[in-house]
Nucleic acid binder design. Structure first.
Length: 223
DNA sequence: CTCCTGGGTT
DNA sequence: AACCCAGGAG
């Protein structure tokens, strides 16, 4: 039985958040069993600054049209831009195509599961590289987006919001929370992100619906 | 580190 | 109409 009163027990927090995720996870197409690494990569790039509701239809159309990196690599930039439609930040669409070309040239049209190789791709930074590894390949990685940062800041550090820039200590804390095994790490990544997106939101957090409210250092400090 | 992006929020 | 955001790039 996990001790939920200990705010710095990563094991207990992890298990509780993952159990919550098992019940409350949104069923998004890029999480479906038939997902592909390319589909996951595309979803992460689209999601970088566009809400889920708008990404979903665009993602379906995109993957139907360009199911493999090679398909996108061969498309005309005008078509790519048109298909990107209202997702915003059109340069990201062009970068995604650059990424597809790089996948064809360097990786035989496949998405690599190696962190270094992923990071070297256009438009893929530390967040997306880690996310693709975890969500596409089920591999262990430290996925640290603003959602996870905020959850950790509150639950573990007792502050409302994380520092403006990622600190060394923050990365180490995040590392402590990631289980040693691949599957566990991937589940924690998805679960902690989902908690940040649905419950532990930046403004108006829904602490009443939070599975780890009792263990949350921020809440215990008087929220 | 700072800058950049355009949609979302206030 | 400012200001914020979130991730990548330089």
């Amino acid at each position: 039985m996990p001790d939920l009163l200990d705010p710095v027990a990563p094991d207990a927090v992890r298990e509780t958040v993952v159990a919550w995720f098992d019940v409350h996870a949104r069923d998004l197409p890029w999480r479906a069993p038939d997902r592909t690494p390319w589909g996951v990569l595309v979803s992460e790039v689209m999601l970088q600054q566009t809400p889920v509701v708008r990404v979903e239809p665009a993602w379906r159309a995109w993957l139907a049209r360009w199911p493999e990196p090679a398909d996108l690599a061969a498309a005309s930039p005008a078509d790519v831009l048109r298909a990107w439609d209202r997702l915003g930040y059109p340069r990201r669409a062009l970068r995604l195509q650059d990424c597809a070309r790089a996948l064809v040239e360097r990786h035989g049209g496949q998405v690599p599961d190696d962190e270094e190789a992923l990071l070297a791709l256009p438009g893929i930074g530390s967040y997306t590289a880690a996310a693709v590894r975890a969500f596409a390949f089920g591999r262990r990685s430290v996925v640290l987006d603003t959602n996870v940062r905020r959850v950790l800041a509150r639950v573990a550090e007792g502050v409302a919001l994380p520092a403006p820039a990622l600190t060394v200590g923050e990365r180490r804390l995040a590392e402590e929370y990631v289980p040693a095994d691949d599957a566990g790490a991937a589940r924690w990544a998805a679960a902690s992100m989902e908690l940040g997106a649905l419950v532990c939101t930046a403004r108006a957090p829904r602490c009443g619906a939070c599975p780890v409210a009792d263990a949350c250092a921020w809440r215990r400090a008087g929220s």
